[in-house]
Design a protein around this nucleic acid. Structure first.
Length: 933
DNA sequence: GACCTGCTGCGGTATG
């Protein structure tokens, strides 16, 4: 034993490495870890957290002796696994301990060895642990020896489904091994250390410690504003060029921006600049990383890919192109230059929009105050479902009560009710994912149909078995095509929210017009386009969700505006930009924007409500306005949402004011309806349903469990019902003032720079089919039921009456009300003989001779059929034989003697031969009714 | 939403 408590062999190795002193975090972590406490270590990157955890554990392994596998090291990235394995191995190999790594890209040969020589230390991902517990029937026996678990970069997963998964896995491991192993978490700065600790420590009864390094690493920051010239791109590139001090990391908030800026920097003659993001090949990424380490790269343009702790060598400067979305990512990104020996890290935020300066300053202020976002986690049920299945895989047959006990021992699921768990089991059993014999659970028949080993998938819903272990969702993407040639890809959700036929898109430097969107095939047809109006700025990426801390911090900046302007980090230009931004308010003597005032302004065809507001509340309000607008106006509207307010493309009426008049439960219902109609809800349903074994279309009665869960998750991620209700309440009480202004305000203009959200009535045809089933309705009745404007419905119904339609409809005249009614074409016959519509199909004079005129689908040559209504009534089936074609383009009644009849006759378009008799009865009844009454 | 992250085990063949 050494003076600092470490085993003498570990201490000797430290001397060998010339580690005279430990970092502060290493010192602080030593005691709690050596004492066997569960420990959460919180410190910025570059403080030596890994060693802070590893050294005392290695020391304990020496002291206490250990059987393989005794230490499990979990980290979220494959690249980190490789790094860490090498780092740990330096110590471990000298202590006679074996280290192994496990992730999807480790060669099979290396993986196979672990059964022959079982490692003392295993480094893997959450998914790797899932695989081992569920499926590695032999190796998992070694997990019974685990005494320590380290979770690295825990801030990255604590708020995600991956986190929820891992925390249940740890409980499963505890139950399987029968050991209350020691848990150690390594985290960057977070706002809620206690929550992070609780989720990690779970049901462990060990004492707990949180080791937190508060000392902020010193750094220098400059907030700059790009000079406004003619071209944002070249202006931005120039600004970046000035900022580069090799080697520099340049962070952007989208992949597109890295590419676009790279192109522009090359145009300026800069070389040795690389690009790094998730969509480029592994080789290119490796090249970029290596040239950084070798000091060859001047700079690398990157997205979040380089935010985590992958070793990239010494970085001189960090440039943030436009403000990062959160304080946490700001600190992480700046921390990438932390390994710089001697000098303090240098950072620079380059602002493009004027409000960027506000955000940059806010992020900086927050970081200085030590305020950081708090990752939260709900208790997603799809994760529970997967873990139930995982346990069934592991044990072949397992008692339901035991599964319930293990899952609820995890902190996140401690409140999961037994009844809800039972309902979930019922549902899984119904979908054949599991089968039950008494209280015993076994695997159901559907399991290996969904997660299959077969290469040629049986059906479209099946997934590879390997995907079962991961809760990372692969979103659908639309393929953009021109003449069947792929041009690019766009995330499905972006398409649903923002893109419609006729839009102009810029892809690969070229301008295209969207000609068709095939939802089923997930493809979009493009045609080349010339310069035009209404280009959709995909690149603007204003959809970046921003920290919920921003609105309040911006408010506090504005509340003491003159002082805020004195901030050291602002350069001359950005300072001027900020005063210019606020000038319009000051000159008209209006209060600077804050959360208790909403400026209502009409800009172009939009009504903008500008204020400082939580993004989720703005999103909820935008969707509500969109819902109200689409049910009363047309589908051709859009809304926007941002921390600077929200807007709706309706100016004739003040829709927010109308919302204020909706009270109580009706308001809650309206919010719910608005959310249920958003594409976000649809995409969450799609994401989670497979975990429950549900395939195909969801049925509100059968699948209420998935639907309710999807709604819960949608609201949690994107909306905020409670805060929105409170916002509306404050508006009503006047606690938030509404002020109409003209002309527009600067933050009102800022709202307009955010991408428009457009309504997407998914499966409107199927919706209509469901409503029409068993009934015949007028347009206004349908509009009422569906909250979709009659005009939009009419267009759809007219498409649906065509021969190639999946849900074919037709229409007839209601003789009593003289309105058109729509119904399913196959049900027309039923209505013709029903009491409800008796008069509409009962001619007054059955012996009158009439002439039916039939125009075929193509061409204009009409045929005529002479008939008496009674003839039809006698035998409608027989009458159809007189019709000379299967499909009729237009049907009407003519009378060569009486041209009035011709004018009065209703016309029926795109009808099928077998319904002609009934439509002729309808036409005769109508005409005679007009003539005789 | 923008972005990112991950993804069979085991024991058996046949071959050099």
């Amino acid at each position: 034993m050494n003076s600092n408590g470490l085993h003498h062999r570990v201490a000797a190795l430290m001397r060998e490495r010339n580690w005279a002193t430990m970092t502060k975090v290493q010192e602080l972590a030593l005691e709690p870890i050596l004492k066997g406490r569960n420990t959460l270590i919180i410190a910025p990157t570059g403080f030596g957290k890994t060693e802070a955890a590893i050294l005392p554990i290695l020391s304990k392994m020496m002291d206490e002796g250990c059987k393989p596998v005794s230490l499990l090291y979990i980290t979220p990235l494959k690249a980190l696994i490789n790094d860490i394995t090498i780092r740990i191995d330096w110590w471990a190999s000298k202590l006679g301990l074996l280290v192994n790594r496990k992730h999807g890209e480790v060669p099979q040969k290396e993986k196979n060895q672990r059964l022959k020589r079982v490692p003392h230390i295993l480094v893997t991902t959450p998914e790797g642990l899932e695989i081992d517990l569920d499926w590695a029937s032999r190796f998992r026996e070694n997990y019974k020896n685990v005494k320590w678990v380290i979770v690295d970069e825990i801030h990255e997963i604590v708020g995600s489904k991956r986190g929820a998964q891992l925390f249940i896995l740890l409980e499963r491991l505890k139950e399987f091994s029968g050991t209350d192993f020691q848990r150690i978490g390594l985290s960057a700065t977070v706002g809620n250390p206690k929550f992070v600790a609780s989720t990690l420590f779970g049901s462990s009864t060990r004492q707990r410690s949180i080791v937190k390094i508060d000392e902020k690493k010193d750094f220098s920051l400059v907030v700059r504003k790009v000079d406004e010239g003619n071209n944002v791109w070249s202006d931005s590139a120039k600004a970046i060029e000035e900022s580069i001090e090799p080697p520099t990391l340049i962070f952007t908030n989208s992949r597109f921006l890295t590419e676009r800026l790279h192109e522009e920097l090359e145009r300026l003659g800069k070389s040795n600049i690389y690009v790094h993001h998730s969509s480029i090949s592994r080789d290119s990424k490796a090249t970029a990383e290596e040239s950084l380490r070798a000091g060859k790269a001047q700079a690398v343009l990157c997205t979040k890919t380089l935010e985590l702790g992958i070793d990239v060598g010494k970085i001189k400067k960090i440039v943030l192109y436009r403000p990062p979305p959160s304080v946490a990512s700001f600190l992480q990104r700046l921390g990438r230059s932390g390994h710089c020996v001697g000098g303090i890290p240098k950072g620079e935020i380059i602002c493009v929009q004027n409000f960027d300066c506000l955000e940059a300053l806010a992020i900086y202020n927050l970081s200085r105050k030590g305020v950081v976002e708090s990752p939260r986690n709900g208790s997603p049920l799809d994760v529970v479902s997967r873990e139930i299945l995982g346990m069934v895989l592991q044990y072949s047959s397992i008692d339901a009560e035991r599964v319930y006990r293990v899952i609820t021992s995890s902190f996140l699921y401690r409140k999961l009710k037994r009844s809800d768990f039972q309902r979930l089991l019922d549902y899984l059993a119904k979908n054949n994912l599991i089968q039950r014999e008494g209280d015993e659970l076994r695997l159901g028949k559907s399991f290996f149909r969904i997660w299959t080993f077969k290469k040629d998938r049986n059906f479209s819903w099946s997934r590879s078995f390997s995907e079962f272990f991961s809760l990372i969702n692969n979103d659908d993407t639309f393929v953009l095509r021109y003449n069947d040639r792929p041009i690019g890809e766009i995330d499905a959700i972006y398409v649903y929210k923002h893109i419609r036929p006729g839009d102009l898109l810029r892809i690969g430097g070229k301008l295209w017009r969207v000609s068709k969107i095939h939802n089923g095939k997930l493809s979009i047809e493009l045609v080349p386009a010339e310069r035009g109006e209404g280009e959709i700025p995909v690149w603007k990426g204003e959809g970046v969700p921003k920290s919920h801390l921003l609105p309040m911090e911006i408010q506090s900046i504005l509340s003491d505006f003159n002082n805020s302007l004195k901030s050291q980090v602002l350069d001359q230009k950005s300072r001027e930009e900020l005063s210019k931004l606020m000038e319009p308010y000051l000159t008209r003597g209006a209060p600077l924007p804050n959360s208790s005032i909403v400026y209502v302004e009409k800009i172009g065809n939009e009504t903008v409500y500008s204020t400082l507001i939580d993004e989720k509340v703005a999103n909820t309000l935008a969707h509500m306005l969109l819902y109200v607008a689409t049910s009363k106006h047309s589908l051709n509207v859009y809304a926007r949402a941002s921390i600077y307010g929200f807007s709706i493309s309706v100016t004739e009426r003040d829709l927010l004011d109308e919302l204020l008049n909706v009270k109580g439960n009706r308001l809650k219902r309206l919010i719910l309806k608005a959310i249920l109609r958003s594409p976000l809800f649809v995409s969450v349903q799609k994401e989670i349903q497979v975990s429950f074994g549900k395939i195909g279309k969801l049925d509100p009665r059968e699948d209420s469990l998935v639907i309710r869960e999807a709604l819960r998750q949608t609201v949690m991620r994107y909306f905020s019902i409670k805060k929105t209700l409170s916002f509306i309440d404050k508006l009503r009480k006047g606690e938030i003032r509404i002020v109409h202004v003209e002309p527009s305000t600067p933050l009102g203009e800022a709202v307009l720079s955010h991408a428009p959200i457009r309504p997407w009535i998914s499966g409107i045809q199927a919706l209509l089919y469901d409503v029409l089933k068993g009934g015949a309705y007028t347009l206004s009745e349908l509009s009422e039921v569906l909250s979709i404007p009659p005009k939009s419905l009419e267009v759809k119904l007219k498409q649906m009456r065509r021969a190639d339609s999946k849900y074919r409809v037709t229409s007839f005249i209601d003789v009593d009300s003289r309105e058109t009614r729509w119904c399913l074409i196959d049900e027309l016959k039923t209505f013709a003989s029903s009491d409800e519509f008796y008069t509409s199909f009962a001619p007054i004079n059955g012996e009158e001779t009439l002439i039916a005129s039939l125009r075929p689908l193509h061409g204009s040559s009409t045929s005529e059929v002479i008939f008496k209504p009674n003839q039809i009534l006698e035998n409608p089936e027989d009458f159809t034989k007189k019709i000379p074609m299967d499909e009729i383009g237009e049907l009407k009644i003519v009378d060569p003697v009486d041209p009035m009849v011709c004018n009065m006759s209703p016309r029926y378009y795109f009808v099928r031969r077998d319904v002609i008799p009934y439509l002729l009865l309808n036409a005769s009844a109508y005409i005679q009714n007009m003539k005789y009454t």
